[in-house]
Amino acid sequence: MMISVHELSKGYGDIQALEGLSFEVQGGELFGVLGPDGAGKSTLFRILLSLLLPGSGTVRVGGLDPVRDLHALRKKVGYMPGKFALYEDLSVEENLQFFASVFGTTPAANYELIKEVYQQIEPFKKRPAGKLSGGMKQKLALSCALIHRPELLVLDEPTTGVDAVSRSEFWALLKKLKAHGITILVATPYMDEAALCDRVALMQKGRLLTVASPGEVVRDFEGLFYGVSGGHPYGLIQACRAFEPVVSVFPFGEELHVRFNRDDEAAEHLVDHLKSSGFSGAVVRPIAPNIEDCFMALMATENDLKG
């Protein structure tokens, strides 16, 4: 067990940042924490890293208590904050050198571990870190976080603000790191990245909505989904929402994803409704929901319950 959190809560004054979180992360797992901005992902990570004190509840990271054993803990973890926090006036090489020495090691000692990542930025090793592109900055930050061969790698929104190609490259790198046996905890606001994790926790407003593997999330989801196309998207959304049994409508690529409650027979009449609303070319097909559909639905339900 790498991380075990039980009934963790944390408040800042009147604001409740985390509310009764409980979950576990196995060693060697690629664990994703998903949620919109302000869900409490960074607060959770900082508590795990001993940077913040838990309000109540128990936290164990690698068997250590972040409150009491903070110095022992800090040797075991690698951390990449959400904001690029390396020294922009130092070169790529100098940044790596510095962070290696801080942890009492050298870039050469663990080169094999960071090779995959570092090779991609090595041609620019003399360049000041501030002059790198967003994707390259992330790779440098990742190299620096890995340089001491941590048992647990904590990445706070590593792909936010990075282009799509760099994002997929970054996830490919994480997969390779997992093969080295490093436990990876990664926060992201992008739902499509959830499918790339071993297990995901969905957070909203300081609460944990679900913790499961991406497959389980989809399989266990209670709902019926249809893909709708053929017509001007905006008008089509309006028309779908006007149909009473519809629970939710979200545009997704070329299609609209329309959700009904499970076993709702009215769903079959959606196409008739659309045709009578003037969308004669409307095409409706049953689809299996993807993980994004499930999370959108879960978050919408949570909002309804709270509202």
Binding site: Y79, P81, A85, Y87, V102
Partner: peptide, 13 residues
């Protein structure tokens, strides 16, 4: 301000 203190704090320094 730049956030590098956060990394230094998480280090054994």
């Amino acid at each position: 301000e730049y956030g590098s203190m956060e990394i230094l704090l998480v280090s054994p320094l």
